Amino acid sequence: MLNSHFEQLETLGLNLLFAGVFFLIGMSIRDVLKQGKVPPFGRFIVWLVLFLGCAGFIAKGVIQLFWEGTGLS
């Protein structure tokens, strides 16, 4: 296997790991919100912050792919 294949597998594994971590964080937050009987506005704020964190991570990945594709990095 070539070095580039190892790098691609490493990147894919890391992205899947982060997706799994975000999923587990979401499940634990859901459980805490349910057990704590948090009002709807509070739930909205918590999920908004979690979504923005995920969106920032995805945006970083897209920007990184774009920059690598154009040869900037």
Rank of each mutant, 00 (worst) to 15 (best):
Q35E: 04
G53N: 06
D31E: 11
L16Q: 05
I63C: 01
F23W: 10
T11S: 12
G36S: 14
G36D: 09
I63Y: 05
A55H: 03
L48K: 03
F44K: 09
S73K: 12
A19I: 07
F66D: 07
E68N: 10
I45K: 13
L65T: 11
E7W: 13
V32R: 10
W47A: 01
F6Y: 12
I25D: 11
Q64A: 11
G69V: 00
I45L: 15
V32L: 15
F44S: 07
P39D: 08
G56K: 08
N3S: 09
G53A: 12
F18T: 13
L24Y: 00
S28E: 06
A19Q: 11
E68V: 15
K34Y: 05
F6T: 12
S73I: 11
F41S: 11
L16S: 03
L16G: 00
G56D: 10
D31L: 02
F57S: 09
L48W: 13
L52G: 05
K34V: 03
F23R: 13
G61A: 04
G69R: 08
I29F: 12
E68R: 15
F51R: 04
L14Y: 15
M27G: 02
E68P: 00
G69E: 09
T70E: 07
I63M: 06
I29S: 12
R30Y: 09
G71Y: 00
I63W: 05
F51H: 04
R43E: 03
L50H: 10
N3H: 10
P40V: 12
V32A: 14
S4G: 01
F22A: 06
T11G: 02
L2E: 09
G71W: 02
S4P: 00
L2C: 04
L14W: 15
T11W: 13
D31V: 00
N15F: 09
G71D: 03
K60M: 14
G42N: 05
Q64V: 05
E10G: 09
G20N: 06
L72Y: 11
K34C: 01
L48M: 10
K34I: 01
G26Y: 03
K60C: 07
F22D: 07
G61Q: 08
V62E: 02
M27L: 14
L14G: 07
E10Q: 09
S28C: 01
L72C: 01
F57H: 14
V38C: 05
G53D: 06
E7T: 06
R43W: 01
I45T: 13
L14H: 15
M1W: 01
F41L: 13
R43V: 03
G69Q: 09
P40Q: 12
L72T: 13
L12D: 14
F22Q: 08
E68D: 14
L52C: 12
L2D: 13
L2Q: 06
M27T: 08
L33W: 02
